[in-house]
Design a protein around this nucleic acid. Sequence first.
DNA 1: TTGAAAGCGCTAACAG
DNA 2: CTGTTAGCGCTTTCAA
Lengths: 342, 342
Amino acid sequence: MKRVSIKDVAREAGVSATTVSYVLNRNPGETISAETTQRVLEAVRRLHYVPNLNARSLSSRRSNLIGVLIPQTEPGKEFMFSNPFYGELLSAIEYTARKNGYHLLLSGTQEDQSYVNVAQNRGVDGIIIVGAYPGRNLEELRGMNVPIVLVDSYVKDAAFHTIGIEDREGARMATEYLIARGHRDIAFVSGSIREHGVNSKRYQGYCDALAAAGIAPDENALYSDTVSYEYGVAAAGEYVRRGRKQTAAFVTADVLAVGLVKGLLQRGLRIPEDLSVVGFDDVYLSRICYPSLTTVHQDIARKGAEAVRLIMEAAAGAHERMECILPLTLVERDSVMERRAR
Amino acid sequence: MKRVSIKDVAREAGVSATTVSYVLNRNPGETISAETTQRVLEAVRRLHYVPNLNARSLSSRRSNLIGVLIPQTEPGKEFMFSNPFYGELLSAIEYTARKNGYHLLLSGTQEDQSYVNVAQNRGVDGIIIVGAYPGRNLEELRGMNVPIVLVDSYVKDAAFHTIGIEDREGARMATEYLIARGHRDIAFVSGSIREHGVNSKRYQGYCDALAAAGIAPDENALYSDTVSYEYGVAAAGEYVRRGRKQTAAFVTADVLAVGLVKGLLQRGLRIPEDLSVVGFDDVYLSRICYPSLTTVHQDIARKGAEAVRLIMEAAAGAHERMECILPLTLVERDSVMERRAR
DNA sequence: TTGAAAGCGCTAACAG
DNA sequence: CTGTTAGCGCTTTCAA
């Protein structure tokens, strides 16, 4: 079964391959007679012709492909979706891309793996990278001449467009919310706090709120390891071990928060009676879990859509660096309560 | 900034492009002198040469690309990840593919959209389709000469390899488990029950177990709509409205089960005291939720890995139809209890 | 052991 | 309005 090519269509329609190409791509300015168009379209249909996008990409230097890189958060961990946030984001990206005629080339990446190849290899029109830290890999990308969008990264580099959220402000908001409800000992639970990472911003926001209320940050209220349900559970143990000094916790990811809650529940504590918890992301999960999570909401669907939009705009010629910061809101659910004596 | 091509490398190394290609692909049988190999490799490094896989695919008819299609479960719903199962599966597929030198072309699909184009377009080496129903779209695929793996589909067609689980048996197991704990009025909660769909198999398994225990299936114990958290919540309302006749429920997806539990909790009922619940899939979520879900476990990571393996084997020449049925086990957690009078 | 030449399927000037 | 001519970057006979 031979694949039917543009030539076959041309022959069938009695025109040249070029004409077929023109009809199919309909560039503004080019003008093909209605009658020829008709004939070509019919031939296409009759032959079930489907253009080979690889070939097109080869000669036209555009592939309608967007590369999406989701870094392996945990080295050694196989799965990128230990945090549902990635799934939801990817979902949004895919949807928007498809609606705009793009396909997605998906790849996880180990930390040690070059980002470039994946992309260069296939001649993608743009790359969306989620949660990148500065480093050698990003350095390599700098030289490439495809638009690159960094999602949730504080790498400031003229070579990259970015899209993020008001991390610091969101964290401040959450912490302030807790303070307003009478809490003064507030835990900060997060993944690793790396420079230029979102967590360090969120930690700042947390400190901002404490400072505004005249509360000194307490080393002992810090719980930081990896963003995972498991660590959440572990943090619960740690919390108990450290003597349960805090009456509330600001947790920088919903998965983590859910783990924490679960760990506490397993130890016979009650939420929010024994510990008020505010999460971050407003992932699907935070509505699902019990008790449902009061959390900092971000518009994940929009984030994905904007990422794709940025790529498209950049590909269309806009060449100044673009930055897009999405707002955050706090959604109240069932995991926080007014502080009272214990 | 011009992309460096194989010719540049050839020039740099003082050999022909052919030789470079040989060195890079190292086909068994071909033999290039160690010295030349050395020179070429060095040139590659110096020039940061990255092969263009599109071009390679064009001339060699293999792309190292696997297309993954995840159907839009709900028409109109944008996101494919309303069920975390898809995310986990995709994750497993991506990981295995990457380890074997393949990239993933990801696409959601509306029901009305042709599956073929997406794939044909890019000359993928194989296609993995999750949860396909028989229909026109599959018909179209039949003609293609790339290996196709259907995941969780009961379409029996010599043209497709399949990978699935013992749906009927799993459902029987779950229901039997409930019966063994004294339950006789057992609800069946699922997405739409379509012919040749997994849910119809699971319904059969459910009936098998009832029959074995001499229990007549009850129309009134059937809750069926869409696989989503939301419908789970809705089903809880419906359950109450219908008079809470059942003391247990077998739910064909964990997300659904979690929704059901949540809906019940919101209405002041207790799990498992008021209703025992068994889920299906053993998605991450089922450990996370409260109470954690007793559920039918399937090895999602393995499922993804097998799907990729099937593609690779088929691409390597194995041409008889392959089928892979994965076993199921029941994991006991906290959502089921012995029946007692109410 | 290596290279020349043809061609994969398509698009992009440039003519006509 | 349409066709001719060159490639895009790579692999693949076939010769040398």
